[in-house]
Design a protein around this nucleic acid. Structure first.
Length: 877
RNA sequence: GGCCGAGUGGCGGAAUGGCAGACGCUGGGGAUUUAAAAUCCCCUGCCCGAAAGGGCGUGAGGGUUCGAUUCCCUCCUCGGCUACCA
């Protein structure tokens, strides 16, 4: 229940109803908002990351970002922008499906119920969303277009020369191919393709997981073990966009840390590919290395256990051991791999490769420290200059040849150097150099070549260039670029996701639906359980699965569904034109609203969601459907909110704060204000109920300052009167600071400033009405309900949402006389009051008039006087 | 192990080269009240002191500067992300 004070429950309900019935926040495409003249308002698109409608309802973390974006949206409207501020639901996902498995309730029913509840909660906070634009990714009218984009991916290829996607019809196809080869050739170029590849299989969940959904070897959801199992999957060729996704980051205004996360995730490295002939075989092993300069130090090779050449090159003697090792590796979960990282394992194949630079024979091993999914799945091992190879070589007693002599600077940065320094060794560099030469330590830095034939004495950087040229000229290798980024595993063995618009015909072909056949709706199924063999629940909907094509061929529908990321990849575009049944969004609306000017959401989506949606956006850009190369201009991450015990909020800890309760007791305005007052938006910070009471007291004080509590009318103290100098100065300072702080997302300090001003006003006997009106306007983005109510009671019949943001007069923010601190040699000795525009000489004279200052000077002459306007004067003696 | 971020009163935080601790919370004292809640006023970094006053103080140590919470170097602690990517 309400805890005394102003009647927020009533006020908030009333204004929420007003906004809804008046469609106050409806955004009009390309023109001014309703009720105003059409004209050239600048647009502003402020977007929240839409939530998954969970059964738990809203968490106090959600309103943090939503309040921040709402403040911006409301502020921008008052600054004369045409604001688009929409909301929606990322509603496909596992929880509703698991609930369905347990109870038999259709996930759509659960989802709708959860959406209704969360929408009620979101609305109770008074956000200025344009609810007519709400989207729901599970809505047939929405996922029709998700499927449409999938078809665009399927029907496109990436032209490396032009660095852009093009329709598959434009793919140049070699002339001499047979029909089957031709089809294969095309399928190999499609941006959506099927692959039979080892994936993360979670037996417990009965589904495949993306790498990102596996955390520390167990499923992110549920914490079940995950093993590697080869299965047929849909993949998206995001890797073709690696370069574009990297370069696009230069166009956006994102936190440096997020850009770096994405850059690292894409993981571009430049090096060389080098071919090693297998001794006595036709086979050639191609490796990728960033250190071609260490080729002379390659003393063995390692293939990933899954490498296709392993079978061919393994000798009969080693075959049983090799096969056993491969089986072991295949079964290993990621957790096992991680755990065993400290202890390398491997198996010799019996085969040898020829080192192209010196024709030396080097043994070929297999080991799971080499990943099939990166580079070529094979490495040349240079134990002297690579930590992993060093460990492996030590364990299996393989030879180590040093080929890089550290530069002095690099030598000093080694661990050994640090150790030697503490031991007081004099010539640290010489000691490190000799340790490298004697193979006592592994050195990974730069230096000068040794033991490298005619390349000796070359510095690392130059060696890399020279050896790459040398290899190219002999057709043994060439410069190469590798990315950590992998193709995106795009299918899930689940029910509650978008069905693929794909049919597998009984004659073994894959046929995509045409766009006219969309949407392909989810069928009803008897139960939602995965079959446990990897076959998805949709396989049980036989009526749906079995189809006959117009040409009489029979086939089965794809029974995998798309991952949750799919719907969230493009929702920001659907908001532009959410009811369009003929296209995902109209081109003119896209051109008007895009790009998103401000995107606010959690840092947990720093990599995946943002990378995936950028990828789709790039595709749509290439195909001409969107006009901006990047979707999200500015990005802000809100921080995490901890429980009152400074721990992550969780049911088990019992420290979860329920937003409904907070709103019930203190009101939505107090909730919003507190979320912003806690601290900087991006920071992790703990909740405090007493803090909520603090801001609530502030709103009560504001109310009492303006309203006579007995009559509910404007207080007699509020009058149309001249502002005294201090009130005027404080008001203008407050207007200025609040505006600047909103622009820089410093909401906490904006609120403090308004608290200072309210504290001042509340002490005045006569409170100038115009000052109060300005205050109400600048507070309204933060606490809209109470401000709307005060605005009305101050005599304004309409909403304040489109009132002009008050202007501050810089000449009124300055005081006429200022107090300065007087320092002698940087230590404060006294304070003086002088006219604000005093010159240095006047200030110095005033300072010298002080007893305390003279005492501190002790008769010494002042050598230098430093004046910081309005702050201090420092006398240097 | 790597990367990113952060260390300021009893607590959340403010100040990013110029008076450290704004604003809020907590705590203490007072006013009001039959009493309480609410409200209002005063105090509230630490140490010495009866006070006046003085000293210390932004994780630790060094440096740059007239002046450093802020910039530079070394180290410590905590949080987040990531993890054999050749």
């Amino acid at each position: 229940m309400e805890k005394g004070g102003y009647p927020f429950t009533e006020i908030e309900a009333q204004w929420q109803k007003y906004w809804e019935t008046h469609k106050t926040f409806s955004a009009t495409d390309g023109t001014r908002p309703k009720g105003q003249l059409t004209g050239g308002k600048p647009k502003f698109y402020v977007l929240d990351m839409f939530p998954y409608p969970s059964g738990q309802g809203l968490h106090v973390g959600h309103p943090e970002g939503y309040t921040a974006s709402d403040i911006i949206a409301r502020y921008k409207r008052m600054k004369g922008f045409n604001v688009l501020h929409p909301f929606g639901w990322d509603a496909f996902g596992l929880p509703a499906e698991q609930y369905a498995i347990q109870t038999g309730t259709h996930p759509a029913v659960t989802t709708q119920k959860n959406i209704d509840n969360m929408r009620r909660q979101v609305k109770s906070l008074g956000f200025s969303y344009d609810w007519d634009r709400q989207v729901d990714t599970t809505d047939l009218g929405y996922y029709k277009w998700t499927q449409w984009i999938f078809l665009k991916l399927y029907n496109s290829w990436f032209d490396e020369d032009r660095q852009k996607a093009r329709p598959i019809e434009e793919l140049p196809i070699p002339a001499e191919l047979s029909d089957a080869q031709r089809e294969q050739y095309i399928n190999d170029q499609r941006l959506a393709y099927e692959a039979f590849a080892p994936v993360n299989w979670c037996p417990e969940l009965g589904t495949v997981l993306a790498n990102e959904e596996v955390v520390g070897g167990v499923s992110e959801r549920g914490g079940f073990p995950v093993i590697r199992k080869p299965m047929r999957q849909w993949m998206l060729r995001i890797t073709r966009y690696a370069e574009r996704l990297m370069k696009g980051l230069d166009l956006v205004d994102w936190p440096e840390s997020i850009r770096k996360l994405q850059t690292d995730w894409i993981g571009r490295s430049v090096g060389a590919s080098v071919d090693f002939q297998v001794d006595g075989h036709e086979a050639v092993i191609r490796v990728f290395t960033t250190r071609p300069d260490t080729l002379f130090g390659a003393t063995y090779m390692v293939l990933a256990p899954e490498h296709p050449l392993v079978d061919a090159i393994t000798t009969d003697v080693y075959r049983p051991d090799v096969n056993q090792y491969r089986q072991q590796a295949a079964r290993k979960s990621d957790l096992d791999r991680t755990d065993l990282a400290k202890d390398k394992t491997g198996q010799f194949t019996g085969a040898y490769a020829i080192n192209p630079v010196n024709d030396g024979l080097i043994p070929i091993w297999i080991s799971d420290y080499v990943l099939i999914s990166y580079g070529t799945g094979a490495i040349m091992a240079v134990p002297a200059h690579d930590e992993r190879d060093w460990e492996f070589a030590k364990k299996f007693e393989l030879p180590i040849i040093p080929v890089v002599q550290p530069t002095p600077e690099a030598a000093l940065q080694t661990d050994l150097a640090a150790k030697l320094r503490t031991e007081g060794v004099k010539d640290v560099v010489a000691a490190v150099l000799s340790a490298v030469k004697r193979c006592e330590i592994c050195f990974v830095g730069d230096g000068v070549a040794i033991n490298s034939g005619s390349f000796n004495d070359l510095p690392t950087a130059e060696f890399k260039i020279r050896i790459t040229d040398w290899l190219s000229s002999r057709n043994l290798g060439k410069q190469a670029v590798c990315y950590k980024l992998r193709d995106w595993l795009f299918s899930r063995q689940r029910y509650w996701g978008e069905p693929f618009p794909i049919i597998h015909t009984d004659d073994g072909r894959t046929v995509a639906l045409s766009e006219q056949d969309l949407p392909l709706g989810l069928p009803e199924v008897a139960d939602y359980k995965p079959t446990g063999t990897g076959e998805p629940p949709l396989a049980k909907a036989t009526d749906w699965v079995n189809v006959t094509l117009p040409d009489g061929r029979t086939g089965k529908r794809e029974t995998n569904t798309m991952p949750q990321w799919a719907g969230s990849c493009w929702y920001y575009l659907r908001y532009l034109d959410p009811h369009n049944e003929r296209e995902p969004f109209a081109a003119d609306k896209e051109r008007y609203w895009m790009p998103v000017d401000l995107y606010i959401g959690g840092a947990e989506h720093a990599v995946l969601h943002l990378l995936y949606s950028r990828f789709w956006h790039h595709l749509l850009y290439d195909l001409g459907y969107v006009s901006t190369p990047e979707p999200f201009k500015k990005l802000i991450n809100q921080g995490m909110i901890l429980g009152e015990d400074n721990q992550k909020m969780s049911k088990s800890r019992g420290n979860v704060i329920n937003p409904d309760k907070v709103i019930e007791e203190y009101g939505a305005d107090s909730m919003r204000l507190y979320e912003m007052f806690m601290g900087p938006l991006e920071a992790t910070k703990p909740w405090s109920m007493q803090g909520v009471e603090g801001v609530h007291r502030f709103l009560n004080r504001l109310w009492r300052t303006v309203i006579d509590e007995n009559t509910g009318k404007i207080s007699e103290n509020v009058q149309e009167s001249e502002q005294d100098e201090e009130t005027q100065r404080l008001l203008h300072q407050t207007i200025q600071k609040v505006g600047e702080d909103i622009e820089s997302f410093g909401f906490n300090t904006a609120i403090s400033q308004m608290m200072i001003f309210v504290n001042h006003l509340s002490k005045l006997k006569i409170r100038p009405k115009d000052a109060i009106e300005s205050l109400v306007l600048i507070l309204s983005p933060f606490a809209p309900h109470i401000c709307e109510e005060l605005w009305r009671r101050l005599g304004h019949p309409n909403t304040l949402a489109y009132e002009t943001w008050p202007a501050h007069d810089p000449s009124r923010t300055r005081a006429q006389r200022v107090e300065l601190a007087v320092q002698v040699l940087g230590k404060i000795k006294d304070r003086i009051v002088v006219p604000a525009d005093s010159d240095t000489a006047t200030i110095e004279a005033a300072a010298l008039a002080s007893e305390k200052v003279r005492a501190a000077l002790a008769g010494k002459p002042v050598k230098k006087t430093i004046v910081v306007q309005g702050r201090l004067v420092n006398l240097v003696i």
